[in-house]
Design a protein around this nucleic acid. Structure first.
Lengths: 223, 223
DNA sequence: CATATTAGTGTATCTTATACACTTAATCTC
DNA sequence: GAGATTAAGTGTATAAGATACACTAATATG
């Protein structure tokens, strides 16, 4: 194998991705079971080393795809973790990203570096490799804060969704129940939703109108 | 010189620091003139390579002290810049920090890697090395946003200050003038200030009461 | 002693956020 | 198919917070 030499020590750089979705009525996060040491067989965030010619965001998307098969998520840089001893092998600095995807995303498939891939409820995480628990906690705080001043929550919705489903997502992330009428007033006042024209199918109650984003893929800031 | 070899390419990692203060009635930022290539003689943010056993924040504080002599600032991680070609020498990933200090801080003194150190008005920046203009623009946006939901502005104040001086700082960062009575009502309602008991000296008008932080060094979040 | 300069103070109005309950449309069960 | 069950859908009154606004007070200067 080739070796790469430098005049002074260089750390390795990785990206790690905290991908959230909503499953049932819980916030869930995607973890992989590590195939190799260190922390072999431990659960960890997907992620890996930055290639020499790719930018950080591309690395995060590539690692997520390689290890879990998931693509097309909303992705945002979170924080860079760099304590000298956070990896037992060598100095590794990790640029952490958080990502959001609708729950109807294709089921994850374990890739090369992962023995297993699974969604875990945020409130029932297993022991985690490295400092990945810190990463997840910070990501969840960011998500909750951003709910108040942006439209991040829409990235957790399928292409069409009901206002009830959207309210549920807000309630899960904020950890408190919301008034239905006030919530709908607020959301509709943003003028970011359009009625799809369809209604919900196959529910044992009055079917709700389906909405879609007026400008899909755009993150808006409120206030 | 020793060489350090790895099985696959490692990027270099630096920190860069965007240190803001208020000078006169302008937002100002500290720049150094680079002593060595690349971008020799260009203005740039202070910063430098992460030592193998120091954490990222320590690196930022050390580089700031070494290159400019300034210590004791408020420091917060901003964003990590990692485009593959952002440095012509080799792959360099930079963890950017922004920092705040009161204007009465000791004058900066050029250190080893800096031929010169100077404050520049934010609205009159020179040409900058690397992607440092992007860093500064992002830092200013973060500062402005954070003004609304935290007490960052207090980090720009001297130990004691008048409400008029504090209002001036808010006006400069927000780029608009504020109503005096409403501003005072808002600031005092936070219950974070204590009267020092002293008043301003040597001004050719009614002297203002001096205030200090009730809990110095603590950042508070509003709302 | 008149002028200039900034400090310091209160209220009325507008805007936004909150609290709150019933009717509707579908499915399910007996 | 009648009644029960479930979530959808809708408006108003009140409370809280944000905004607009003008004069008097204390010091220095000429």
């Amino acid at each position: 194998m080739a070796t790469y030499c430098y005049d002074y020590p260089h750390p390795a750089v990785t990206t790690d991705i905290a991908l959230f979705t909503i499953i049932g009525d819980k916030l869930a996060i995607l973890l992989i079971r590590r195939r190799s040491p260190p922390f072999q067989d431990s659960w960890a965030l997907p992620g890996g080393f930055v290639d020499s010619d790719e930018c950080l965001e591309d690395c995060a998307l590539r690692e997520l795809a390689e290890e879990t098969g998931i693509t097309g998520v909303y992705l945002e840089q979170l924080y860079t973790f760099g304590k000298p001893d956070r990896d037992p092998r060598e100095r590794i600095i990790s640029v952490a990203y958080y990502a959001l995807a609708p729950a109807d995303i294709l089921s994850p498939i374990a890739g090369s570096d992962a023995a297993e891939v699974r969604w875990f409820a945020f409130d029932a995480l297993p022991d985690l490799a490295f400092d990945h628990r810190d990463v997840i906690v910070l990501a969840q705080q960011r998500l909750r804060a951003k709910l108040d001043y942006s439209t991040v929550a829409f990235s957790l919705m399928a292409e069409t969704f009901t206002l009830g489903e959207l309210q549920k997502v807000y309630e899960i992330i904020r950890g408190e129940s919301l008034d239905k009428r006030n919530f709908r007033k607020y959301i509709l006042s943003l003028n970011l939703l359009a009625e799809s024209g369809e209604t919900q199918q196959g529910c044992n109650h009055r079917p709700a109108k389906l909405y879609r984003l007026a400008q899909p893929g755009t993150l808006h800031y409120i206030r």
